[in-house]
């Protein structure tokens, strides 16, 4: 069976992210990594191909393309890359690309491996504004949590080396840990705020999502909201915040799997 043009553009996007990841790993090992046009070209190229897919698929189904787990995973991968271009420069985290590329690849490859990736889009249905807002914002918030996870891993790697009085040539080029601390906080606030709006949108939908699905989204929200609340009220070491952002992302991943099943 010939592959559809939609599948091919997403395959191209996945290859771009794979190339970005390979380039970053190779040059970090060599100690010569310079975040520059190659990483931007590869991430930007992948993002553009995904945008093309989302446009085609959106036109086909007459709404936001988030009707199947294949589309959901692609949308998250796209959100991660979009947030990288928005958040990265704001926090002077050009090296976030090193971690953005594998994350985007992970989600995009998972999407392409889904059985419905080769299936034609679902027929046009009536979409509700609140429903689409809910889904889109929830997925973008997951993208923010994914980037916070990446920044958290970068922090933990460096913190460990600084505590061991070592700086390996590869890690020497990672962003300063204070910038990462600020980025993690910013990304968690962004993600939690978007998820708050996403949950509130769900209650404006004519036909509300199933209770178990909403419960798990509330659970994810509660996790990050309590983390931020604790951090602001009691104070939290940067290391613990980074660990929470890095390992806490497992919960959204599990929730995605759960939502995907329903």
């Amino acid at each position: 069976m010939p592959l559809s043009r939609e599948f091919l553009v997403l395959l191209g996007a996945a290859l771009c992210y794979l190339g970005g990841f390979g380039y970053a790993v190779h040059s970090l090992r060599q100690g010569t990594y310079r975040p520059g046009r190659w990483m931007l070209l590869l991430l930007g190229g992948g993002g553009l191909l995904q945008t093309l897919f989302l446009r085609w698929r959106g036109q086909a189904i007459g709404g936001c393309p988030m009707t199947t787990p294949f589309e959901l995973l692609t949308f998250i991968s796209w959100s991660i890359v979009a947030l990288y271009f928005i958040i990265g420069p704001a926090y002077r985290l050009s090296l976030l690309g090193v971690f953005t590329a594998p994350l985007a690849l992970l989600f995009q490859a998972s999407a392409l491996l889904r059985p419905e990736a080769l299936a034609p889009p679902l027929p046009k249905i009536t979409h509700s504004f609140w429903g689409e807002l809910h889904a889109a914002l929830a997925l973008v918030s997951y993208g923010a949590f994914a980037l916070a996870c990446a920044a958290g891993i970068m922090f933990l790697l460096q913190d460990r080396q600084l505590k061991q009085h070592r700086i390996s040539p590869g890690l020497r080029q990672l962003p300063p840990i204070h910038y990462l601390t600020r980025a993690i906080r910013g990304l968690l606030i962004t993600g939690t705020s978007l998820l708050t709006v996403a949950i509130l949108s769900a209650y404006r939908m004519e036909k509300q999502p199933p209770t178990d699905k909403l419960t798990i989204v509330w659970f994810v929200w509660a996790l990050y909201a309590s983390l931020l609340l604790y951090e602001s009220r009691r104070g939290m070491s940067a290391r613990r915040a980074a660990a929470a952002a890095a390992f806490g992302f497992l919960i959204p991943i599990i929730s995605l799997w759960f939502i995907g099943r329903h």
Binding site: Q30, G31, T32, Q158, L162, I167, R172
Partner: peptide, 24 residues
């Protein structure tokens, strides 16, 4: 293309490099 100029070679410059690694 090499690491010939990377890193700091004196105690003072290592201290500065570490400070930049931590605070930017």
């Amino acid at each position: 293309n090499t690491q010939i100029q990377r890193g700091s070679t004196s105690v003072g410059s290592v201290a500065v490099e570490l400070a930049e690694k931590i605070f930017g």
